[in-house]
Write a protein that binds this DNA or RNA. Structure first.
Length: 421
RNA sequence: GUGGGCGUAGCUCAGCUGGUAGAGCACUCGGUUGUGGUCCGAGAUGUCGCGGGUUCGAGCCCCGUCGUUCACCCCA
C-alpha cells in the first residue's frame, strides 16, 4: 500500500527551529510597547459566528466577500475562522460589558488569523498578527499613543527602512460629501468593466490601483482629506501635533485606502521598503461606528494590527536579527549505563536552579557526543563516566577555548554561575 | 479568482541534441584506550512532485494534476 505524504494545507506559514526563535523574538518585541503602556491580554477564539465579520468588517470588503474560511459546525451554525482581530475584541467587550467599566478598555492580542487568498511573498492563508485596541474614549492623544506604540515596536526590533503613512477618513459628514464628488468624478473617466465594478462597491478603492494609466487618471480626483469637516480637520491636526512632538515621522497619504469598512477618522499604515508587493507590516485606525453596529453602545475605538510574518521578513531583509542561537549552559555526556542515571539526576538538579542543561542520549560515541555539544552552542561540557561518578569530581570544559578545570559535582552550581558573568 | 516562473538526496543545485542519476553542505562512523570546532577516509539517503501520453528507451518532449514562487487583486 502506497501512503500519500501528508503536507500542510496550502499557503500556511510555519516556523521551525532555528527560525522559530526569531519569530518568537519578533512577536515579543511587537507586543512589548503595548504592555508597557498598560494594555492587557485578551485571548479570544479563533473561530466566531460568521455574522460578526459580515456585519463588523463589512459585506462589501474582499475580506468578507471572498476570503473567509466559513463552514457549518455540527450544530448547523455558520462559523468563520477569524480574518482579523478587531471584530472579535469588540464582540468580547460587548458580551462581557467591559464598556460599562473603566474607559478606555485597553487590550492587546496575539495569534493566528485566516484568509483564503492566493499565497504570495508575505501573504499566507494562516498568518500571525499582534494588535492593540483602545476602546471608549475619543481623544486625538490616544490616536497618537497607538501610532507611537506600533512605531516603537518596529524601532525596538531595529527596523529602519519603513515609513508611516497617515490620513484621516473624517466623520460621516466628511465622507458623504467627498463620496458624491468622487463618484461624479469617476463617472467621467474611461474605466474598464472590472474597475468600474470595484468603484461601485467602494469608490475609494480606485485610489489604490497600481496601474500607471489609472494612477494618471486619478491625479485630479477629489481627495477625502480636502472634505474634512472643521471638527474632523481639527482632530487630525491635533494628532499630527502630537506625532511631531513625539518625533515620529510620517507622510500624509490622502490616497490611502484600507480594506476594512469600519475605519473612520485617523487611519494609518506602516509600509516596509524591502518587502515586494505585500509591503504593509502594520496598519490600523479609528472605528467610530463599529461597536454600535455590533450591538453595543456607541463608543469610539482605535487600534492596529501588525503582521508578525511580514515583520520577520522585514527584519531578515534589513539584517537586524541578533541571531543569538539557542545557547545552553551545560552539555552532559554520560558514558555507560550507571553514569546515564547520574546525568539525569545532575541535569534535573541544575535545571531546578535555572541552568539550561542538555544531555547526550543514545549511547553515542564520545566524539559524536562532543560534536553535538559543540553544535548545541553550550558554554560548557562535562563527560560523566564511572570515574567522575565515584570520585564526585568532574572536568568542566569550556567550549569556547577547550580549557578544562576540575570541579566537585557538589560545587558545580556555583562554578557555573561564577563563570556565567 | 487571473497570469508567469519553478518542482532532481535533509538543504543549495548540476544533469550536454531523450540512453534508467551526480556535486557541495549537512548527517553517521572511523583516523587505536574517555573529550568538539580544522584535516583525511568510509558510509547512508532519492519510486528525478504525482498521473497519463509520445518513444525501442524520458529527469530531460507533450498533456493533466498537485505543490511552490512571483505578480495582479487584496491586505498584515
Amino acid at each position: 500500500m502506497k501512503r500519500e505524504k501528508i503536507m500542510a494545507p496550502k499557503g500556511v506559514s510555519e516556523y521551525l527551529p532555528p527560525r522559530s526563535a526569531s519569530f518568537e523574538w519578533v512577536r515579543e518585541k511587537l507586543i512589548n510597547p503595548a504592555k508597557l503602556a498598560g494594555y492587557q491580554l485578551m485571548e479570544l477564539p479563533v473561530f466566531e459566528d460568521t455574522q460578526l465579520f459580515s456585519r463588523g468588517v463589512g459585506e462589501s470588503t474582499d475580506v468578507v466577500s471572498k476570503e473567509m474560511y466559513t463552514f457549518e459546525d455540527r450544530g448547523g451554525r455558520s462559523i468563520t475562522l477569524r480574518p482579523e482581530g478587531t471584530a472579535g475584541v469588540m464582540r468580547a467587550v460587548i458580551e462581557h460589558s467591559l464598556d460599562r467599566g473603566q474607559l478606555p478598555v485597553k487590550v492587546y492580542y496575539s495569534g493566528a488569523f485566516f484568509r483564503a487568498e492566493r499565497p504570495q511573498a508575505g501573504r499566507y492563508r494562516q498568518f500571525y498578527q499582534v494588535g492593540v485596541e483602545s476602546i471608549g474614549i475619543d481623544d486625538p492623544a490616544i490616536d497618537a499613543e497607538i501610532i507611537a506604540l506600533a512605531d516603537n515596536a518596529f524601532k525596538s526590533i531595529g527596523l529602519k527602512r519603513y515609513r508611516l503613512e497617515i490620513t484621516s477618513l473624517g466623520d460621516q459628514a466628511s465622507r458623504a460629501a467627498h463620496r458624491s464628488d468622487l463618484v461624479q468624478f469617476l463617472a467621467g473617466l474611461d474605466l474598464d468593466d472590472a474597475t468600474r465594478a470595484r468603484a461601485e462597491i467602494n469608490p475609494l478603492r480606485i485610489f489604490d490601483d497600481k496601474r500607471e494609466e489609472i494612477k494618471a487618471l486619478m491625479v485630479g480626483a477629489p481627495l477625502l482629506i480636502d472634505y474634512l469637516t472643521p471638527e474632523s480637520k481639527a482632530n487630525f491636526d491635533q494628532v499630527r501635533t502630537y506625532l511631531d512632538a513625539l518625533k515620529i515621522s510620517y507622510v500624509i497619504n490622502p490616497r490611502m485606502v484600507r480594506g476594512l469598512d469600519y475605519y473612520t477618522g485617523t487611519t494609518f499604515e506602516f509600509v516596509h521598503e524591502d518587502l515586494g508587493a505585500q509591503s504593509g507590516i502594520g496598519g490600523g485606525g479609528r472605528y467610530d461606528g463599529l461597536m454600535h453596529t455590533l450591538g453595543g453602545s456607541d463608543l469610539s475605538g482605535i487600534g492596529f494590527g501588525l503582521g508578525v510574518d511580514r515583520v520577520l521578513l522585514a527584519a531578515e531583509a534589513e539584517g537586524v536579527l541578533a541571531l543569538s542561537e539557542f545557547v545552553s549552559d551545560l552539555y552532559l555526556i554520560p558514558l555507560g549505563e550507571s553514569s546515564k542515571q547520574a546525568a539525569l539526576l545532575l541535569a534535573q538538579e541544575l535545571r531546578g536552579d535555572g541552568f539550561q542543561v542538555e544531555i547526550a542520549f543514545g549511547d553515542r560515541a564520545l566524539k559524536g557526543a562532543m560534536k553535538a555539544a559543540d553544535k548545541s552552542g553550550s558554554a560548557y561540557a562535562i563527560v560523566l563516566g564511572d570515574t567522575e561518578v565515584s570520585s564526585g569530581v568532574v572536568e568542566l570544559k569550556r567550549m569556547s577555548d577547550g580549557q578544562v578545570s576540575s570541579v566537585k559535582m557538589s560545587e558545580l552550581k556555583s562554578a557555573l554561575s561564577e563563570r556565567k558573568q
